[in-house]
Design a protein around this nucleic acid. Structure first.
Lengths: 204, 204
DNA sequence: GCAATAGTTAAACAACTGTTTAAAACAATT
DNA sequence: AATTGTTTTAAACAGTTGTTTAACTATTGC
């Protein structure tokens, strides 16, 4: 069901799908070409190399992920509500795109420096750290949050609790005998739980 | 610095190192042979195939990881103390073996069914679920823990909060400008924080 | 209409990989 | 000392992969 007939877009969509599912090393240019309903040479014609194509997808993915959080942060609402919103946003998103966490994990193992640099770039482009960091510091200074609380702290906890259960989906389902419906319920039910957990952990 | 001269052990050690660092697909038999200070044919002579060698390492890794948790669980101490012990154990272990989380993640993407089956097998071998599950249910029934709390819930939270920060080590260090010492401090400082967070989240 | 550019195709190339082979070296047993 | 089974080596094999080539077609600009 490929609506876009532009070959460049078709290849991008195919590459995204294959890279997400298999990671860089296991994905092949021939497979991407077939998925895009074209041939091998076309993929190289439009995107020069596998590495280049991969990093376009990689960049796109990070932009999307950080865009979500940037939107939540710039809203004029209490910080607790921001945290809850980010968690809901991420859980919902990863449920629809369950391959993204493992895609990124795979790239961390393959090329940590490159992905770290990309991440840093994207973080400074959106001013997440600044806008959120100031608000947190204010809460710390006012004695509302515990003294050691930082942006890093909160972000790691949010990502840990949202990303990991998606990453380990196959293991959870098999080891605990959950059907897909039960797994979905489990993840969705965690949204409020995680939010409360994190908010409680930062309040003094 | 290879102390063991037994070629089989030498190949195992080499394979463990290479597989941990690069994952199944990116690791090559030639690289393992070189690392083991022997040649290609020897690796196949002792281990038949790459797939087989990989699953020996895989099995060994899961046995080790679940062994740790099994030990903590069977101690005759309050359940809160058990949770704290597991967290400390895992954080310390992953700090020494930072490649294991990404190694397992890589295998989840490559062959989810196989790793899920292996995990299930190992879980039922150690009687984690049983021994821990009973104790949790007792706390729930006595009104000490919240009604919805299960083994799965607690385990996912423990693993999420311990594994993810290790998995994303390169990104954390780069994006937040942390030196290795600062990163280590950050992770080590989280041990108590995580313990409190999880225990608070399950108590009624 | 025509030349130049862009798009498309099938085939070839070169490098790499897991696995196998066949012969040599070694060890132990008879 | 000869034989047997095991270990080690170097080479070959067959398949896959990313990339390039060269020929062909379609499109565009003049």
């Amino acid at each position: 069901m490929e609506l876009n007939t532009d070959p460049e877009k078709k290849i991008m969509n195919a590459a995204r799908k294959i890279f997400y599912e298999k990671g860089f090393k296991s994905a092949t240019m021939r497979e991407i070409a077939t998925e895009a309903d074209t041939n091998l040479a076309m993929v190289n014609y439009y995107f020069r190399s596998k590495e280049n194509l991969f990093y376009i997808i990689n960049d796109e993915t990070f932009t999307m992920l950080l865009g979500k959080v940037a939107l939540c942060i710039q809203e004029d609402i209490p910080i607790e509500q921001k945290i809850t919103n980010i968690i809901h946003e991420y859980v919902d998103f990863f449920m629809i795109n369950p391959h993204i966490p493992s895609f990124i994990s795979g790239e961390i193992i393959r090329n940590p420096q490159k992905i770290a640099t990309l991440m840093k770039e994207k973080i400074s482009q959106s001013n997440i750290h600044k806008a959120f960091g100031i608000q947190i510091k204010k809460h710390v200074d006012e004695g509302i949050f515990k003294p050691h609380i930082t942006t890093l702290n909160i972000f790691i906890n949010i990502l840990s609790l949202t990303v990991f259960p998606i990453l380990s989906q196959p293991i959870i389902k098999e080891a605990f005998n959950l059907s897909s419906e039960e797994y979905n319920e489990f993840i969705m039910g965690r949204k409020e739980e995680i939010s409360q957990m994190i908010i409680n952990s930062i309040k003094v």
